[in-house]
Design a protein around this nucleic acid. Structure first.
Lengths: 188, 188
DNA sequence: GTCTATAGCTTGATAGAC
DNA sequence: GTCTATCAAGCTATAGAC
C-alpha cells in the first residue's frame, strides 16, 4: 500500500484530548466537531474510517508523544538521576499536572475495538520496558527493576484516578515527586 | 402476578455492574434492559428519574456494600492484622479479583451529574478515613497513617487499570497481597 | 409491575454543492 | 477541504394495555 496521507498533528491533538476526557462512548461526533471546529462531514473526510480511525489516530499520537518525550530520553545513555528528573517533567506535561486522564485508562473500557485494546496494551508494555531499563541502569536486579517499573506506573495511574475523583491534583503531584526514589534509588 | 417484581437489591446490583463495566455514557438503556431482563419501560417505572436515578442508586449500593463489608469491620475494635486480612478478602470480592473496574473510576469521567461526583468523592473520603484509622491502630503516626491510606488506595486503583489494560489480574492480586504490610506494618 | 408500541431527539455516517 | 442537508439507527423517555 502507498503511504497513507499524513494527518494534521494539531487536529489529532484536539481529537485525542476529547477521547481522553470523555472516553470512547463519550467522545461523540458532536463533541469532536466542536473541539476541532470542523463539521462532522469534514472529520469524515479526514478520517474515512470514522470514530474507530479517529480513536486509533489519537491513541497512536499519544503513544508517539509519550515514546518521544518520556521514554526515548531514558533509552539514551546517561545519568539515571538526570533522566528521571526529565521524565517527571514530561509526565507532568503529558497529564497536565494530573488534570487530564491517562489515554490507557480512558480508552480501556470495553467500548473500543480489539485492535485499539491491543495498541493500548502494547503502549503499556513499552512504558513498562523503558521504566524497567531505567531501574536496571540504576542498579536494581532485573526482577526488582521490573517490580519498580510496574509499581511506578500503578502509582501514576492510581493517583490520576484519585486526583480526578477528589478534584485535587495533589495525589498525582506527590506520586510524581516520589518517582525518582522509586525508580533510581535501590537503597529505599 | 405474571411478572413477579425483582427485589430492589438484586435489580440495583445488576444495574451497578453495567455502570461499572461501561461507564455512564456506555450504560445505555438497552444494555441495562438486557442485564436486568426488564424492559426499558419497567426500569423507568422503578426509577422514574431515569439513568440519573439509576446511576445514583448504583453508586449508593456500591458505597453501601463497600462500607458494610470492607470499611465497617475496620471500625470495630480488634486486631489490625486480622482486620486487614478480612479487608483483602472483601476487596478481592468487590473487584472480582481485578476483573471489575472500580465504581469511582468508571463513573468519574465528566459525563455524570454534579451530585453523582459529590457522592463519589464522599465515598472516597470514607474509604480514606477508614484505612487511615486502621493504619493508626497499627502504630502509625496520624500523618504517616494518612499517607499509607492514600498510598493503599492509589495502588488498588492503579493496579485495576493495569489489570484491565493487560487483561491480566496479576497486578491487582499483587497489590492486594502487599496491603497488609502497607497498612499495618510501620517497620517497612 | 411489566409489557408493547412509539414519540422525539441524538448518534454515527453519507451525499452533493461550492 | 469544508460546508449544508440528510439518512437510518440508536438513544432516553413516555403512553397506555394487561
Amino acid at each position: 500500500m502507498a503511504h497513507p496521507r499524513t494527518p494534521d498533528a494539531e487536529l489529532i491533538g484536539k481529537i485525542a484530548r476529547v477521547f481522553r476526557q470523555h472516553g470512547y462512548e463519550g467522545a461523540s461526533m458532536a463533541r469532536l466537531s466542536a473541539a476541532t471546529s470542523l463539521e462532522k462531514a469534514s472529520l469524515y473526510h479526514r478520517f474515512p474510517g470514522g470514530k474507530d480511525e479517529m480513536v486509533a489516530a489519537a491513541a497512536a499520537a499519544g503513544n508517539a508523544w509519550f515514546s518521544e518525550h518520556v521514554l526515548q530520553p531514558i533509552s539514551q545513555p546517561g545519568e539515571p538521576a538526570a533522566q528521571i528528573k526529565l521524565v517527571c517533567l514530561r509526565l507532568r506535561e503529558f497529564y497536565e499536572d494530573g488534570k487530564l486522564p491517562c489515554v490507557l485508562e480512558a480508552l480501556s473500557l470495553p467500548a473500543g475495538s480489539e485492535p485499539l485494546h491491543e495498541a493500548l496494551a502494547s503502549s503499556l508494555d513499552a512504558w513498562l520496558g523503558a521504566f524497567t531499563q531505567l531501574a536496571r541502569n540504576s542498579g536494581f536486579t532485573p526482577a526488582a527493576a521490573r517490580d519498580r517499573a510496574e509499581q511506578a506506573i500503578i502509582e501514576i495511574e492510581g493517583s490520576l484516578v484519585l486526583a480526578r475523583v477528589k478534584a485535587d491534583t495533589g495525589p498525582f503531584l506527590r506520586a510524581i515527586r516520589k518517582l525518582p526514589r522509586l525508580l533510581t534509588e535501590p537503597s529505599i
